[in-house]
């Protein structure tokens, strides 16, 4: 019987103690932040976003060498890089931010933020700190495709143009190489022409035979 009453009183008193706690908290200042009205950088426990905060990635294109280290370091494959070599005949001869000559155009530098896991491995891997975390975290959107951000400074036509220039250069080089080769061959032929004069008649007969065989 005493136990019974004790239990009742204990239960009642613990409830009152709990109510006291909530009553005290009723008059405490709130700890939440009215998010869009008050910027969330003002947060309980930290007055500003830390320097190494890992939010949306940003690529500083003038710093990027196109080494693809970040692409390899990414654990979720959200970075896609495609580079085009800078053609020597290209009139546009840009320098990197540190004054070095640019070797690659970044014809494609896409980051899919729908896949990005904000691990920061790409920023560590980058040798020139071209890919960094910004403090921007408010980039939600209605379409998933908008999360695929293109960092490349070129649009499609420009990329095509750069590719064309490179192809031209390659072609020119190839032509030049061919011309050089032909010239060398010619020179060699001219040198050898006296040596091979005797043999040439035999060669011609065998060539004729070949043609006949083919036509048969």
């Amino acid at each position: 019987m005493i136990n019974y009453l004790k239990n009742i009183i204990k239960g009642f008193s613990t409830i009152l103690v709990g109510m006291k706690v909530t009553f005290i908290n009723l008059f405490r200042p709130n700890v939440t932040v009215q998010y869009p009205n008050v910027h969330p950088l003002v947060r309980a426990g930290s007055d500003k976003m830390p320097d190494n905060a890992r939010n949306k990635l940003n690529v500083i294109i003038p710093k990027c060498t196109g080494c693809k280290s970040c692409e390899k370091a990414c654990p979720v494959n959200c970075i896609t890089i495609e580079t085009t070599k800078v053609a020597s005949i290209d009139t546009e001869k840009p320098l990197m931010e540190d004054g070095k000559k640019r070797v690659f155009w970044l014809s494609q530098f896409d980051i899919d933020f729908a896949k990005c896991c904000f691990c920061g491995l790409c920023t560590i891997a980058c040798p020139t700190s071209a890919i960094v975390h910004s403090t921007d975290f408010e980039y939600s959107c209605y379409d998933r495709n908008e999360l695929l951000v293109h960092f490349s400074p070129f649009n499609k036509e420009q990329v095509a143009e750069k590719k064309r220039i490179l192809a031209e250069e390659v072609k020119q080089k190839a032509e030049k190489a061919l011309a050089d080769k032909q010239a060398a061959e010619k020179a060699a032929q001219e040198q050898n022409i006296t040596d091979s004069k005797i043999k040439s008649s035999d060669d011609q007969t065998s060539a004729n035979q070949n043609i006949q065989n083919n036509s048969n």
Partner: peptide, 13 residues
């Protein structure tokens, strides 16, 4: 509002 104030938040604003 009471719930929010007890829980140290502001409630509907």
């Amino acid at each position: 509002k009471i719930a929010s104030f007890i829980q140290l938040k502001l409630g509907p604003m």
